[in-house]
Simulated assay, not measured.
Amino acid sequence: MRKSGVIFDFNGTLFWDSKYQEDSWDEYLQLHSINLTKAQKREYIHGRNGKDTFEILFNRKLNNQEVHQFTEEKEVLYRNECLKNKMELAPGAKSLLEELKARKIPMAIATASGKTNVDFFIEKFDLLHYFKKEHIIYDDGTVKGKPNPDLFLKAIEALGADRKKSIVFEDSFSGIQAAINSKVSKVFIVNSTGDNYEGFDLPVIKHFDEFDITLIA
């Protein structure tokens, strides 16, 4: 019998880096003379994979080499922002991860980040203490980005978990929709930015201590 799985988005969920993302995107957009409203950034950038985002920004189809080039140009700016600041997991995240690990509950990360950022996170947060490397699912160019459910479904399959018993934690609007589209048991919104999520009829937490671990079967 397949067990419940717990799947975490990373940016804005396990790592509250929204300011670093915003600052690096603002710098990147300015370098390319692209002007976006806050609503457009939420729709076109946050939670989406690189190919989708850059094709929207540059208004044309891109090949894999171009996607890699544009992504790395932006992510160098992002990682520099991270390194200027204190990097730590979200409030209550370490305790929850330790508890899930102790209970041997399958858990994964499903992030729209690319490999270079994931490698950076693995090193800075010692993620392999909590997650098997094969359970850290990222944008490798082969999976449709959020709001498509593919990243979450790939994570659930990697865990060998029961989708209908699994739980997803997300923060971005496109990611929340992807989690809903994956038809998991429960979706928890992690409000790391004080955003308004009233359009979703879902539980919202501001600290991982607020999550009741007994909800996991």
Rank of each mutant, 00 (worst) to 15 (best):
T37H: 07
T37I: 09
T37E: 11
K38M: 12
K38D: 14
A39Y: 05
A39P: 08
Q40M: 13
Q40T: 08
K41R: 14
R42T: 13
R42S: 15
R42A: 15
E43N: 12
E43I: 04
E43P: 07
Y44R: 09
I45M: 12
I45T: 12
G47E: 05
G47Q: 03
G47P: 13
G47N: 05
G47S: 05
G47A: 03
R48I: 01
N49G: 07
G50A: 15
G50M: 07
G50K: 05
K51M: 09
D52P: 10
D52R: 03
T53S: 11
T53E: 04
T53W: 00
T53F: 01
E55K: 02
E55L: 03
E55F: 01
I56N: 13
I56Q: 15
L57E: 14
F58G: 15
N59A: 14
N59E: 13
N59G: 08
R60M: 11
R60V: 11
K61R: 12
L62D: 10
L62K: 04
N63L: 03
N63D: 15
N64A: 13
N64Y: 05
E66M: 01
E66T: 03
V67F: 00
V67N: 06
H68P: 04
H68Y: 12
Q69G: 05
Q69Y: 11
Q69F: 12
F70I: 13
E72L: 10
E72T: 08
E73R: 00
L77V: 06
Y78K: 03
R79H: 10
N80M: 09
N80D: 15
C82V: 12
C82R: 11
L83Y: 06
L83E: 15
L83I: 07
L83K: 11
L83V: 05
K84C: 09
N85G: 10
K86G: 15
K86T: 15
K86F: 07
M87E: 13
M87S: 15
M87A: 13
L89W: 02
A90V: 01
P91M: 00
G92T: 04
G92F: 00
A93D: 14
A93V: 08
A93G: 12
S95H: 09
S95W: 04
S95R: 09
S95M: 08
L96W: 00
L96D: 09
L97C: 07
E98R: 02
E99A: 14
L100Y: 02
L100S: 06
R103L: 12
I105K: 04
I105G: 11
P106S: 02
M107H: 10
A108H: 03
A108Y: 03
A108D: 04
A110N: 08
T111C: 00
S113W: 00
G114A: 10
K115E: 13
K115N: 10
K115V: 07
K115H: 09
T116V: 14
N117T: 06
V118N: 01
F121I: 03
I122W: 02
I122S: 08
E123L: 01
E123R: 00
K124P: 07
K124I: 04
K124N: 12
L127Q: 06
L128S: 06
H129I: 05
H129T: 14
H129E: 13
F131E: 08
K132W: 02
K132S: 14
E134S: 12
E134F: 00
H135A: 10
H135R: 04
H135W: 05
